[in-house]
């Protein structure tokens, strides 16, 4: 079971958290300027130390060669948020350490030599930062990092230099994002150096109304300051979501919205990504507020992740893309408990 599929996780406004740490080794050019031979050598050196490690949470991890994986597998990993766009398209030597639940990973030879990432349905940022920094220290015991007294950890992009840290919290903001104040609020938040974006990009997935709140600055702020800042502004948005839904809709209207969404998911025979995301979002809001009750636990976020095209194809083992709409409807139907 992957980290986002835990059925006992609730459907609150706080959905999940992600912490990513970027590092480069001192004595090698960054991946874009690295020859394939040097990249292979560097991967071999890192593997020599890291293969037998356990994660700081005590899990084992396995090593995958990204450049030898199918495009479908890599796209699914991107949809699961384990790897980014660059890594999903890498055909040059690149690798990935990943725990069985995909929650802890270290990618090698993406935009930077090393990309440490922790994903969790529990938004306990201090704990996640701790896991990242421990992996960071363990690697550093064997390898010299590219570090500069003024610019901190040196990264391929100036947007990561300094701490190399990106902290993000995924929020479910169905009512706030539809309200006229949302854009103003996003601007306010940006003044603190915190950005808000669609958590699943600009495609049909954005109908899920999941937003990622993240630090924009990496230089001139410490790791602890970044963690505290992102949490504070994510909390601010969560409070505004509660206000937005109560100010604009009565409880009956909100219950109605969630129940209708359940009906669409339960009886649809074809579900596009947009349909699935929009209805799952409404259902999630109703469950989070406990306006509707199901006969069993349901992790709606996990269902949303698995409704993305590559993830769904892998999950249902059906690779005929013509049938994805029908497969998605069937998959969602099978996962839904009864509405009480």
């Amino acid at each position: 079971m992957n980290w986002y599929e835990d059925p006992n996780v609730g459907n609150e406004i706080f959905v999940a958290a992600r912490i990513r740490l970027t590092r480069n080794l001192r004595d090698y050019a960054f991946p874009n300027k690295l020859s394939n031979d040097d990249a292979e050598e560097l991967i071999a050196k890192l593997r020599d130390k890291m293969d037998g490690w356990k994660t700081p949470t005590g899990e084992t991890w396995s090593f995958l060669r990204l450049d030898r994986m199918s495009a479908l597998q890599k796209n699914a990993l991107r949809e699961h948020r384990v790897i980014n766009e660059t890594l999903s398209q890498r055909v040059r030597p690149s690798g990935l350490y990943m725990s069985a639940d995909e929650g802890v990973s270290v990618a090698l030879m993406g935009d930077d030599h090393i990309r440490i990432q922790v994903l969790s349905p529990e938004v306990t940022l201090d704990r996640l930062w701790n896991i990242c920094t421990k992996i960071d220290d363990a690697i550093n015991e064997h390898f010299n990092y590219a570090f500069h007294d003024r610019y901190g950890y040196l990264t391929a992009f100036p947007t990561n230099m300094g701490t190399g840290l990106r902290v993000s919290v995924i929020l479910h903001l169905p009512y706030l994002s539809a309200s006229p104040q949302f854009h103003k609020l996003v601007n306010e938040v940006a003044r603190f150096g915190v950005g808000v974006r669609n958590a699943f990009g600009e495609g049909e997935e954005k109908a899920g109304r999941l937003f990622e709140v993240y630090n924009q600055n990496t230089l001139g702020v410490s790791e602890e300051e970044i963690v505290a800042l992102v949490y504070r502004l994510a909390s601010h948005l969560a409070v505004n979501e509660k206000q937005a839904r109560e100010q604009r809709y009565t409880p009956v209207m909100r219950e109605d919205e969630a129940a209708k969404a359940y009906g669409r998911l339960k009886y649809a025979r074809l579900l596009s990504v947009r349909d699935a995301m929009a209805s799952l979002s409404s259902l999630r809001a109703g469950l989070g507020e406990e306006l509707i009750t199901l006969s069993g636990p349901l992790n709606v976020f996990g269902l949303m992740v698995n409704c993305c095209p590559a993830a769904l194809a892998l999950k249902t083992m059906n690779y005929n893309t013509d049938n994805l709409g029908a497969d998605r409807a069937e998959f969602v139907r099978a996962m839904l408990p009864e509405l009480l």
Binding site: N140, Y153, G220
Partner: peptide, 20 residues
């Protein structure tokens, strides 16, 4: 474009002495 022009966070435990 950044919060400041100087790193104020974590330092690597090893291997940073050879930089400036």
């Amino acid at each position: 474009v950044q919060a400041g022009d100087r790193h104020t966070g974590k330092h690597p435990a090893y291997g940073w002495l050879n930089s400036d």
